[in-house]
Design a protein around this nucleic acid. Structure first.
Lengths: 226, 226
DNA sequence: AAATAAATGTGAAATATCTTACATTTTTAC
DNA sequence: GTAAAAATGTAAGATATTTCACATTTATTT
């Protein structure tokens, strides 16, 4: 755990770009940078929430323990604030965050963060915008998850990694089949079957965790039609 | 459409309670109060978004047109801001809002609202808190919807109306069976069957739209176990 | 390097839910 | 007040998905 130099940080959030030199100096004293390996828990559902997390580098899953299984509610990469909803106005974390790839995060003191909202309107506005876009994404995701059937949900997840995370037709899936099932709201077995079906139909190339999109058009159609 | 007197308004939002007299005077000139009957659309998915909505009185459903059916993503009663996510930083409404009961709302000019966030830290903070709590609720709801089976989801919806909307064991369901299905992510027929099952099992009393909870404990168990 | 644990693949049976089809009731419009 | 439209109820067959059971591969530990 080392103290980070916020003033010189070149991976600031949009909101933090509106902080003054004085505010950044203050942040520097109330903020710690920590590294996580894949699989390591950043914060845990049920634990006391005390810091806002800022992902500087890496990939993280947010997950909730549901009545029947673990559910991945969101996968998010840097740069991004994490856990604002579960820290502001909540004593206990309502969900967990776990690193999927080597990840560096800043732990920001909640009072410092609150004071920025109180005293810096541009910072506050950017945080509001970020929260709003989160909610819109969550709505859409919820509609997708509940209305599409498995093929559509798996296709959507593949496109998500390709478009939103790796910007590449080819990527290494950062999840086990079990986790992929928790993301697509289905069973491990159904994920295996569906991925292999896509493989047989030459929609994707599949070599354990390596996925390459071969027929993007068709994948998009499957994702949209559900 | 009449101009509302914000200064004298006794159903201000928590955030608006932090507005100064000057700010309220300004709001008064940039804000219009409108009444809606049940079934009337307040704003529509796909239309240009231009105002923040504040529900002064009534009950509203937020709904999205999904790939296969209409989905009710949220039911919310006064006092509450609506459509912040779909108005801030978005040009087009990402979802619709429709009145379920006689409803009065204020249309607040987006620039006025933005300026309050920029210039009034306490107002901004309350908006952030509200958005955070929305996101947490949406997460939980999404987990419930995707993991529970029909009985659990219907039980949950009945408890929602009883606990969160009407604060009463007995209430008139403000939805058709079709809408109830759109809320619980199932078909109209399955809703009918499940409600009648609960009725036969003496968990609820059911007379078309009138519902009375007879066995709350059991209903809660069904809701939790899914 | 061997042994153990974890992850993955695959088919068949079990099950929840949807769809279809139609009867009945309630609401709305003229 | 009657006709038309919308909403509701109910059963049976169709279907998507899960669960179970087990084989196989890959990773981890000693």
């Amino acid at each position: 755990m080392k103290i980070n130099k916020c003033l010189d940080c070149n991976i600031k959030s949009v909101a933090a770009q509106y902080l003054s030199e004085d505010e950044l100096t203050h942040l520097q004293n109330q903020c710690a940078s920590v590294d996580f390996k894949p699989g390591e828990v950043i914060f845990k559902q049920g634990a006391l929430s005390s810091n806002i997390i800022y992902i500087k580098r890496g990939l993280v899953k947010l997950h909730i323990q549901g009545p029947h299984r673990e559910q991945i509610i969101k996968i998010t990469k840097s740069p991004k604030y994490l856990g604002i909803p579960t820290t502001i106005h909540e004593k206990i974390n309502q969900y967990s965050a776990t690193a999927l790839e080597p990840t560096s995060v800043c732990f920001i003191d909640i009072e410092t963060f609150k004071n920025f909202i109180y005293n810096n309107g541009k910072f506050a506005y950017e945080i509001v915008v970020d929260l709003c876009q989160n909610e819109l994404k969550t709505f859409k995701q919820c509609v997708n998850r509940t209305q599409k059937q498995i093929k559509g949900r798996v296709a959507e997840a593949i496109l998500f990694f390709s478009n939103d995370i790796y910007n590449n037709d080819e990527f290494i899936l950062p999840l086990t089949r079990e986790e992929f099932a928790n993301l697509t709201d289905t069973s491990r077995e159904s994920v295996c079957k569906t991925l292999n079906e896509f493989h047989v139909d030459k929609i994707i190339e599949l070599d354990s965790k390596k996925i390459k999109i071969l027929n993007r058009k068709l994948l998009e159609t499957i994702s949209e039609k559900g």
